[in-house]
């Protein structure tokens, strides 16, 4: 196996999200969706972002691409991509220079991302014409190349198919082909396999991994599935209630997790424990972020919590090389 730590040490950061704070204004009150979020995606790495419903993982990615709803208010922080702060860019620059040609995004449900009245080939050709070649013949050939790169069998056949004629896994690969046609450097994938069957998921994950290895594609992979994370990610960030709980290389995260939430999460996943009796549960439920718990937002559910956890938010500390934890008592956690 490749020694990931050394490799990561040499890699340059591609996307740096720094101290990002974000609120949503709603009728019920202000939702404090992100509270000092820090994530660094390095070149050629797959960075997993994991958390449960409402932890802010999708909001983080939408902020990066400037795709937030009108009621979102960024309260601070930076999103640095190749030395430039994306938060300071205007909509036109974002659209012309960033979305598509630098950063692409794919979503959970590919059938709603594709246009039902155009064939797969036509939709990819649109990207090819904008970013690569406007010669019609050449564009078509390039589309077929892209379809081949994502390992779709019989690209000519897929070219002329409408989205409804393709399975979910094939649709998702068409989305990837479209991204490749834009020549993006960073892919943000938001739960891309949740709607797919396991056998199709396995094929899709292999394609992503091969693209990382052959073309140095960087991926921010958002999911709630610990098993998928362990499968393809190099580095993992765990989010809870709009805060970062822990960031570490994937083997460290699974072998020596330090944040109580990470540990709870790992132990509640079927597959780690063989039988129901051994399952561990995290008491309580995910907090609502209109009135989030004070201090560390995990404290009401945490067995290690003490007075200080209610008062002070723990800083994200580097406890070992590339292993960051935000917990007052990480040294005591087992």
């Amino acid at each position: 196996m490749v020694d990931i730590t050394n490799e990561v040490g040499r890699k340059r950061p591609l996307l740096e999200i720094k101290d990002l704070k974000l609120d949503f204004l709603t009728e019920e009150g202000t939702v404090k969706a992100l509270d000092n979020v820090n994530i660094t995606v390095k070149k050629g790495e797959i960075h997993g972002l994991i958390g449960e419903t409402g932890c802010g993982k999708s909001v983080t990615s939408l902020t990066t691409l400037g795709l937030l709803d009108d009621n979102a208010r960024i309260r601070g922080g930076e999103v640095i991509y190749k030395g430039k702060d994306l938060l300071k860019m205007d909509e036109n620059t974002l659209r012309q220079k960033v979305r598509g040609n630098e950063i692409s995004m794919i979503f959970q449900n590919p059938s709603t991302s594709l246009n039902p009245v155009y064939t797969a080939g036509e939709q990819i050709r649109e990207s090819v014409v904008i970013y690569q070649s406007d010669d019609k013949k050449e564009a078509q050939k390039l589309v077929l190349d892209e379809l081949d790169r994502v390992k779709l069998p019989d690209p000519e056949d897929v070219y002329d198919k409408y989205p409804h004629e393709l399975s979910g896994g094939m649709q998702q690969r068409v989305m990837i082909a479209m991204m490749l046609a834009c020549d993006s450097n960073l892919l943000i994938a938001d739960e891309p396999t949740t709607a797919l069957d396991v056998s199709i998921q396995a094929q899709f994950l292999k394609v992503l991994q091969e693209l990382k290895e052959s073309e140095g594609l960087s991926i921010l992979y958002i999911t709630h599935d610990m098993a998928v994370i362990s499968e393809i990610c190099d580095v993992v960030t765990v989010m809870y209630g709009g805060q970062i709980a822990e960031t570490a290389d994937v083997s460290d995260l699974f072998n020596t997790p330090k944040h109580p939430y990470t540990i709870g999460l790992i132990h509640s996943v079927p597959g780690v424990k063989e039988s129901i009796e051994e399952f561990e549960t995290i008491p309580g439920t995910v907090p609502r972020l209109i009135n989030p718990p004070s201090g560390c937002r995990f404290h009401p559910r945490c067995e290690y919590a003490r007075e200080i956890c209610k008062k002070e938010k723990p800083n994200l500390e580097e406890i070992e090389k590339n292993h960051y934890v935000a917990c007052h008592f990480w040294e005591e956690v087992e």
Binding site: P153, S199, A202, V269, G271
Partner: peptide, 16 residues
């Protein structure tokens, strides 16, 4: 094809 929550165990994609 089923991913396991263990970074040392990798899936194969035997089904085409």
């Amino acid at each position: 094809s089923v991913p396991q929550p263990d970074p040392d165990k990798k899936v194969e994609a035997p089904l085409t």
